[in-house]
Design a protein around this nucleic acid. Structure first.
Lengths: 250, 250
DNA sequence: CGCTATGCCGAACACTGTACGGACTCCGCA
DNA sequence: TGCGGAGTCCGTACAGTGTTCGGCATAGCG
């Protein structure tokens, strides 16, 4: 029986030619290792390149080896999102008066994380509030704490936190999707903006107000332009929240 | 040769049994028809169900028939996004003093469009600022006009508009992804929130501030809760922008 | 030593987007 | 009237996807 299975095609398929099937040279696969490599792959090649097979070969593993560690590709993505949230810094326990500075620092940190991993923009819309990972919790609790420390009651602190988070996420998503489109084009930020310009002008032809908007594009360094735009909106949002805080604190 | 091709399986495939291959009973395919049907499919079955083959059968067309009308699936999606932006109402030419009411109406209209088509959340992160469709332009120009009419100079009006849009998009994306998760679960909004509750509480265990947040979940009607949350943030953002407008207008 | 649990993987399945080439219809021009 | 080209539609094919299943080999435990 064993002899009969010594079969045809393979030249010499004996025990000795077998690659010994590494015992534990790599610590096999672990959830955190998988997630870390997935983030690396996403950073390097974007969301379209994340397939289980590609991820498998990078970890020299098979494509179906992940299903022992993770239920789904979707579940893997949830883990990856939480991993990125791990990069966000929140103040330990905010001093009551510094709430505005704390909130601004938090917002900047959140934006930085999203821009460092622009593929997050494609993913945030799919994973919902069902996000219950530890880092998402930590960031939420931290930002909530800022507004509670500022003197808002619990329910209003939640509203304030959601407002700030919505602004940061909304702005960062549009920045991030710009950055990925940019990366796909291979051009520099200036070149790409310049190349887009005629199309944009044509599209804006019917709306004179928009003309100036696109005309202003190539003027300054786009990077600092984006930073200033984010900062302006952040200040306005915090202005608005300051009104609410002042109302409660007198 | 022709005789040899009169083949096996078909009972009688002769010229006379042929269904005459409709000439132009349907106006064939048109770009707007394709886009409309794609929106319908997305509304009914969500982003995961949009495949060219499925869309094809709904229009009784082949899967590859779209490539005469549209370069890509991505291009189709750009068209679909612009179609949804077509539902958004913007004020014609705002009266100078009503800027706040106009902006609020605009924001509500944008939110309504995104919530009516929750799959937009999954898509907004992928299509970037390269969105140059006529309806996106119309909405942008309209919202920009509101702030110009309010007295802001062109560049600051752009900043203000971007701030408001970022808030609305960010908040609506998180609402929409909640709604799609909800729809996938099949349960009602209350049931689903109640079912999620123990997991949320467990995840929030380490953060006492979050406990109250989730504890408040099943209290009121989730729908009006969402509406109020959006309204609160919108008021705060407009408060902040009002400060800027007041500064310029004296 | 043997047994069972566990992680890993090859093969297979259903399905995706898209390139290609052929067939058909229509329109303008000779 | 006939013809040729342009435009549309689609069957086929290909590479690649997520996921299931069944068979492994190993690890840890008795």
């Amino acid at each position: 029986m064993a002899a009969s299975r010594a079969n045809d095609k393979q030249p010499i398929a004996s025990v000795w030619t077998r690659p010994e099937r590494r015992k534990r040279d790599q610590p096999a696969l672990s959830r955190s290792q998988i997630v870390a490599e997935a983030v690396r792959l996403l950073d390097e090649e974007g969301i379209g390149a994340l397939s289980l097979r590609r991820l498998g070969t990078r970890l020299n593993a098979g494509a179906t080896s992940f299903y022992s560690h993770v239920a789904n590709k979707d579940e893997l993505i949830e883990l990856v999102v939480d991993e990125v949230y791990g990069e966000i810094a929140v103040p330990e326990a905010g001093a009551p008066a510094d709430w505005r500075a704390d909130a601004a620092r938090c917002a900047q940190s959140l934006r930085a994380a999203l821009l460092a991993h622009p593929w997050m923009a494609s993913v945030l819309g799919e994973v919902g509030v069902s996000q219950l990972g530890p880092n998402v919790m930590r960031v939420s609790a931290g930002m909530l704490g800022i507004f509670q420390a500022a003197g808002l009651p619990a329910d209003e602190a939640d509203l304030a936190f959601s407002t700030l988070a919505a602004y940061v996420i909304g702005m960062s998503i549009s920045e991030a999707s710009w950055l990925t489109a940019l990366a796909r084009s291979g051009r520099s930020e200036q070149d790409w903006a310049a190349e887009l310009w005629p199309a944009a002008e044509a599209a804006a032809a019917a709306h004179p107000g928009l003309r100036e908007r696109y005309a202003a594009l190539p003027a300054k360094d786009p990077r600092t332009l984006r930073d200033e735009k984010f900062g302006y909106g952040l200040d306005r949002v915090l202005d608005g929240l300051a009104g609410a805080v002042g109302q409660r604190a007198g």
